[in-house]
Design a protein around this nucleic acid. Structure first.
Length: 568
DNA sequence: GCCGTTTTCGGCCCGACTGTTTTCAGTCG
């Protein structure tokens, strides 16, 4: 069965081929837009029974609906098969090289017999490119640099890493006299799970001062571009873009630089319809600015409420804003406790007392200590006997606490034979039971779905932890029928975790949104193995926000009493 | 190829930076 991801890839590849063949750019955009739509669907395209159903999807019209239908019914697409014979595969890969776009690729292929990255590198090194029309020595060098950059990092950077790097850059520039305001923008501000580069925005009357301070920062290994108001550098293997505008334009520049690109395009189209123009300098009526200083004003000038950055993915947020139906998103300060923490009783680094101190410093009212069960030897899980001791210890700790409660819990392993690693008679003694898969990730979709649903159906299991098991950039999620899992969770009032660790973010944003649609509640938990990791909660909250979740959708916004009533 | 409370045909976002082609095309975000 063909997956959505594969269909999206086919459409992207068609767009690539059309681009190299210098086809109609709007048609190319249509294929790319459709690919984005398909990628963000939670439902399998192969479950769509008719062309009419497919056409209801945004950016899918008659022609593309028929093509999708052809793919899901026959397994292939005639148009694509024919198209791909016209351009070698290696040629398309050239498009991923920075500074190399479709026009260049087309020229290289047609006039210089370049068919892949290796032959391009050779041609550039032998100076066979600089004599082509429109190319010169510097272009040749730029291409070689691009190849090097492409080989160095193809992968997007995990949010967890980029976020702190961006914060550090802001910190090292914010005290300059020339800097009036500074913020990071781009996909980090939208809190996407991975990011391509770091975008920093500064308001200043003296851009050149800011630029030179920026370019002198520690860790910069290369300056890619350097203009009056915009510079790009490579810093610690990551591209960092800095843009400077006047304070009057800071709001609109922040809006522009935050993206996403699709969100911005739709917003500018909306502006045009109202006889306005939107760019990074402001909202304009004719050449008269009507907004720009603050980001809120930009949306207001277009007749919209403020749209939080996490929603700006062109996933219906602009339509919802027009209708006045934006969600009232959950915020970090609504979180009343962390429901997935490991202590020294299994593989955690800290004592339960240390966890409590940390939780109180974060303003929480409760935590749940959920150590591992024995199945996974490496984590020194707690067996029945040890767990009973741990319960006693927690009771003792609770006696000394006022206005705070430690919940007894476990992260019980769901074994590959669908049974749990500890018997019900001990699970029932606990305040809260998390269940999770830690082994045999490669089971079939059916088997894995049955495995998780069997845990969901256990009367003591309250929460499924990291439900899809992915490690971002390292391990794919296991094959799972997410819809069936959500249905089972709803029917049994089982909660699904959003694991806040930026390596996981699991459930991910679109699954969180799907959970809400299905009426399934989530818990946002850090899975901390060290009390410092309890500070990772904002990443989980951001993922929930990207999933359009509101405080009532999240279990651990509840007071302790309410929380207990919501557990099985 | 999509889409429509101005449109079923004629639109489809916007500007910075670079290099090269002495006025602009290509790439990027």
């Amino acid at each position: 069965m063909i997956t959505n991801k594969e269909i999206a890839r086919i459409f992207d590849e068609i767009a690539d081929i059309l681009e190299v063949k210098e086809g109609d750019k709007f048609k190319i955009r249509a294929y790319r837009k459709a690919a984005r739509t398909i990628e963000s669907l939670t439902q399998d395209l192969s479950d769509f029974s008719s062309v009419t159903e497919l056409k209801k999807l945004p950016s899918i019209g008659d022609a593309l609906a028929k093509k999708i239908h052809e793919i899901i019914t026959s397994g292939k697409l005639e148009y694509y098969e024919e198209l791909r014979t016209s351009v070698p595969e290696g040629v398309l890969e050239l498009l991923s090289i920075p500074n190399v776009g479709p026009k260049t690729v087309s020229k290289l292929y047609n006039e210089c017999n370049v068919t892949d990255i290796e032959s391009l590198e050779l041609a550039a090194k032998n100076h066979r490119l600089q004599h082509l029309f429109g190319m010169g020595r510097k272009t040749e060098e730029r291409i070689l640099k691009g190849i090097e950059q492409y080989r160095r990092h193809k992968e997007r950077i995990p949010l967890g890493k980029a976020y702190f790097q961006a914060k550090n850059i802001v910190k090292s520039l914010e005290n300059l006299d020339a800097v009036e305001r500074i913020a990071f923008a781009g996909s980090i501000r939208r809190m996407r799970e991975t990011i391509g580069d770091i975008d920093i925005l500064v308001a200043s009357e003296n851009p050149s001062r800011v630029m030179s301070a920026f370019k002198a920062l520690d860790g910069i290994t290369e300056i890619i571009a350097s203009g009056d108001t915009k510079s790009s550098v490579i810093m610690d293997d990551t591209q960092v873009d800095l843009r400077v505008v006047r304070d009057d334009s800071f709001g609109s520049a922040l809006q522009y630089f935050t993206g996403s690109q699709l969100h911005n395009i739709k917003l500018r189209e909306l502006a045009l319809k109202q006889g306005l123009k939107l760019n990074e300098y402001g909202v304009f009526k004719g050449d008269q600015p009507v907004a720009g200083k603050r980001e809120e004003e930009v949306y207001e000038a277009l007749g919209l409420p403020f749209i939080p950055p996490e929603l700006r993915e062109d996933q219906g947020e602009i339509e919802a804003a027009i209708e006045g139906e934006l969600p009232d998103l959950i915020e970090l300060n609504r979180i009343k406790g962390d429901l997935h923490i490991h202590s020294r009783w299994s593989d955690g680094k800290n004592s339960i007392e240390e966890v409590v101190d940390k939780a109180r410093s974060l303003g929480y009212e409760y935590v749940a200590i959920c150590d591992h069960s024995p199945a996974i030897g490496i984590t020194r899980g707690v067996n029945e006997e040890k767990l009973l001791d741990e319960i006693i210890e927690i009771e003792r700790i609770n006696e000394d606490l006022s206005d705070f409660k430690v919940l007894t819990g476990i992260e019980v392993d769901i074994r590959s034979d669908n049974t749990l690693d500890l018997p019900d008679k001990i699970l029932e003694k606990l305040d809260i039971v998390l269940a999770a898969v830690h082994t045999k990730f490669s089971q079939s979709k059916d088997a894995m779905t049955r495995r998780i649903i069997s845990a969901i159906k256990n009367p003591h299991v309250d929460i499924i932890a990291h439900p899809t098991g992915r490690l971002i950039g390292k391990r794919d999620p296991y094959d799972l029928d997410i819809e069936a899992v959500l249905d089972a969770a709803r029917d049994t009032r089982t909660i699904l975790e959003i694991n806040a660790n930026p390596r996981r973010l699991d459930l991910k944003d679109i699954h969180a949104r799907y959970a809400k649609e299905k009426g399934v509640k989530v818990a946002i938990s850090t899975d901390a193995h060290d009390i410092s990791q309890m500070e990772l909660m904002p990443f989980g909250v951001a993922t929930a926000r990207r999933g359009w979740l509101e405080p009532e959708d999240v279990l651990n916004t509840r007071s302790l009493d309410e929380l207990m009533r919501n557990l099985k």
